[in-house]
Design a protein around this nucleic acid. Structure first.
Lengths: 244, 244
DNA sequence: GGCATAGTTCGTCACGCGCCTAACCAATGA
DNA sequence: TCATTGGTTAGGCGCGTGACGAACTATGCC
């Protein structure tokens, strides 16, 4: 009982719809203001304020004050990792029960940010391409960048210098809850997203984790990475996957 | 909001003291009956029954019926992993606030099971020894067994055959919430625990995750693994660590 | 200065849910 | 057969906490 005490607090914080929605929104990797989060979570600003206070005092999120705005963000990769692992379990759960799927869901499944890197079909496709071209080695147990891959990523514009590295995980497989396959996380994953954004290959929207792949992005990923991307126009026709 | 829905359910399940206690107990890796769990969580059997039903329907735990007993266990490594990641966040949390430490806590910090492998000072010491002797390579990003290490582990009696492997993670670093360092998880970690138990090196108690290191165990680990074990008798004198 | 907007504090309401006791079903063993 | 023990169902109680509106402070722009 003693051992479980803190765990309960943390889980209870996530176990509320409003707060989970806030956390999910922040999992997009961006900083958002209190009012934005209130809007996203469909609650009043006072209520959001309360929730945010709790999350901040529990160190699940961090805040920086800027003028009259307060920008909230996920406090650490450890928290992001936890949220993903919960999501992962939530995705196995739900047996035969009917699960409605919205267009938003489909977009999310196609491409989204996972804290600081790409996930969804897009994230997995990039990981697959990197593996196929022997730029990285990715097993369930861990990931590694080959010398060839290091050269490739540097040419692409990724900053893999020791300074950027700064003690954080370098190349890590991250099990994708929607695809149930691995994509690339860690510094490598973060840098790929950063470059894709800088190049205008992908575009993020402010209040969602969904990521839009631009036409150049599609072309660039095929040409540079040799990625095999699913045809976006066909997604909605495919119908509901069985789920397991 | 749509995306967060299931996540909320799962987190809310963990976010209750009684249920978290049950899950923590099952993280010992053993199967326990409903009555035992009721006793551990200090709740009545009817209440435990309710909680267990919820956990089972959510697929966080699984149950097998055996006569009039029902044995509950963690449903999958994914769930175990999730619980560990929550625990990990919970361990960073709690700023300067006073945290009472019981003897039980100290024992837990010294050696415990983490689902199916060893954790705590003991787990970390074993991992350190394996790394020092170049039996395994362990980085934040992943783990690997060297050919030398494979030979060593086989001689020790670990079953690393493809059959035992059966699609599960092989050698994975698992961040220890009490030590904040890595120990070995995956099949390798599980097999080490299994052998240590079979050799009478460690003993588990039924209703706790705490693990007792026997005298032979201490001797064996020093001799065979070359492990540097902390002196158990000194533990309580050390005083309260600052926590961060 | 005055107005608009971001965010917090306060007081109140009400719903949810965890808990218990009591009663009931199920399996084992004498 | 009946006692024993594991587990579930039913009903009712009470606390916790998430929700809101109203009123308040703080910052920035005209």
């Amino acid at each position: 009982m003693v051992a479980a005490a803190n765990m309960v607090e943390v889980a209870a914080l996530v176990g509320d719809t409003a707060r989970a929605t806030i956390l999910a929104a922040l999992m997009g990797g961006q900083s958002l203001t209190g009012s934005e989060l209130a809007y996203i979570a469909r609650i009043s600003r006072p209520t959001a304020s309360e929730h945010l206070l709790k999350l901040v005092t529990a160190r699940l999120i961090a805040v920086t004050k800027q003028g009259r705005f307060r920008y909230y963000r996920i406090a650490s990769p450890l928290v992001a990792n936890m949220l993903e692992s919960i999501k992962l379990v939530a995705a196995i759960e739900v047996p035969a029960r009917y699960q409605p799927r919205s267009i938003q869901d489909d977009e999310m499944r196609f491409a989204r940010t996972c804290y600081d890197h790409l996930a969804g079909q897009l994230g997995v496709a990039i990981a697959d391409a990197l593996v196929a071209n022997k730029h990285i080695v990715l097993s369930e147990d861990g990931g590694e960048v080959t010398t060839k891959g290091e050269k490739f990523l540097c040419e692409f514009g990724a900053d893999l210098s020791p300074k950027a590295r700064g003690g954080r995980l370098f190349c890590r497989p991250c099990l994708d809850w929607s695809e149930r396959r691995y994509h690339v996380a860690g510094l490598v994953g973060a840098q790929i997203l950063r470059r894709c954004e800088a190049l205008g290959w992908v575009a993020r929207k402010r209040d969602t984790r969904t990521v839009k792949l631009t036409a150049q992005g599609r072309a660039g990923l095929v040409k540079t990475f040799g990625a095999k991307l699913p045809d976006e126009t066909q997604r909605h026709i495919k119908g509901v996957r069985t789920g397991r």
